[in-house]
Simulated scan of single mutants.
Amino acid sequence: MRITGIKTLVVNAEMRNWVFVKVLTDQDGLYGWGEASLNWKTRAVVGAVEDIEPLLIGRDPRDIEQCLRVMNKHSYYRLGIIGATAISGIEHALWDIFGKSVGLPVWRLLGGKVRDKVRVYTHLGLGDMRSVYETFDKGALREKALAVVENGYDALKVVFIPYSHFTADIPSRRHVAILMETLRDAVGDGVEIMVDFHGRPASISAALQFIDELVPYRPMFCEEPVQPGDADAMRIVAERSSCPIATGERLVGIKEFEPLFMSKGAHIVQPDLNHTGGLLEGKRIAAAAEAAFMGVAPHNPNGPLAGVAALHFDVSTPNFVIQEEMSGAVPWYDAVVQTPLHREGSYWSVPTAPGFGVEIDENAAARHPFKPEVIHTLAAVLGDGTIVDW
């Protein structure tokens, strides 16, 4: 079996673009699908896939480890998030091919089943990205949170830490406490709440001040309280916080996670299997996290194929905690992609179809061509004009 080509298919899902990757083989009807979506970097990722394609033509797609070595080592320059996202999408497709070729779901090939269902959570707005990033009013927060719970979820994530700098002023801290109190009162103690800081505090002290406001309302975890890449800063936050701390969505590969493991800089790590190098790299990260007494809650605000890849990972990963998902983000979600993402309450069921068990209607996908995405970062400016982290 040999790889004969790699194609990309861009589908605009209103607030973001999905980048699907199709790896073709010389076996009739045997191909694989993956996803390489990256917000605001669509054309760059598509170009990276095109650049990588010649490295894999003629290779056996089932030799996944070897294909990864080729893509990483023969690119010469170390790959950042764009290259790693392109590789992740291609690697997903290789697993899909492998599973189809042997008639087994991908989770079987990743080590087999370690759980009977996969717990998931979603965001405010059930896929509407404006609701995710622009809900700072307590009335709207309550309404949108109740809508999530009414849809069967028992866990949700919010992003209402204000655009910050090196200090956290008293009105901002009080408003965060009011929002969290409103949220907890609305959903009760039976619903887990995760608060995504989005790396907005520019100092450890500001992050801790906001965390102190949240702790009385028992969040499941506080995510990315400071900008990624400084394991010592994360360690200080984790040590001083009485709330579990999560991070990792912007780290690429196990090398960038290693300082976090060594410093015990978090309680939960969040590799994005769509960005960090694929499923094999994700399994390495998960194994190292388990050795460091950390759980894994994969990041995934991406499209349906990224969700399916995460599902297979979650089924086979012992220290998995909970999965972020964005299914139903657009009304025509199921018209373009057929997936095994079947949710009952706040759990996905375990898929049984060979490979990833997905299929894409390329004609339906063509009705939603690339469009420039909404740039949320334009709002991340303080009153004096200072540009801060989104």
Score class of each variant (00 low, 15 high):
His275Thr: 14
Val191Pro: 05
Thr386Leu: 10
Val374Gln: 12
Arg343Ala: 11
Gly58Val: 11
Arg367Phe: 13
Tyr121Asn: 05
Ser131Asp: 05
Ile90Glu: 00
Asp232Trp: 05
Leu214Pro: 04
Arg284Trp: 07
Thr386His: 01
Arg119Leu: 02
Thr42Asn: 04
Val237Gln: 02
Gly152Met: 10
Ala93Met: 08
Thr339Pro: 05
Leu109Cys: 07
Arg43Asn: 09
Asp389Pro: 14
Glu325Ile: 01
Gly29Arg: 09
Pro372His: 01
Val132Phe: 03
Asp384Cys: 11
Met71Ile: 08
Thr85Tyr: 03
Arg62Asn: 15
Arg62Ser: 15
Gly47Met: 04
Ala335Trp: 08
Gln227Ser: 12
Phe257Val: 10
Val19Thr: 03
Val195Glu: 00
Ile90Pro: 01
Val215Asn: 01
Arg130Pro: 07
Val49Lys: 00
Arg2His: 09
Gly307Lys: 07
Ser349Leu: 15
Ala145Thr: 08
Ala287Leu: 08
Phe160His: 13
Tyr347Gln: 12
Gly80Ser: 15
Glu181Val: 12
Ala177His: 09
Asp314His: 07
Thr42Glu: 02
Val237Tyr: 06
Val10Glu: 01
Gln209Gly: 15
Leu68Trp: 10
Ala287Phe: 01
Asp26His: 12
Ile245Arg: 05
Ser327Val: 04
Arg59Ala: 15
Val374Ala: 06
Val336Ile: 11
Thr85His: 06
Val191Trp: 02
Gly188Lys: 03
Ala36Pro: 04
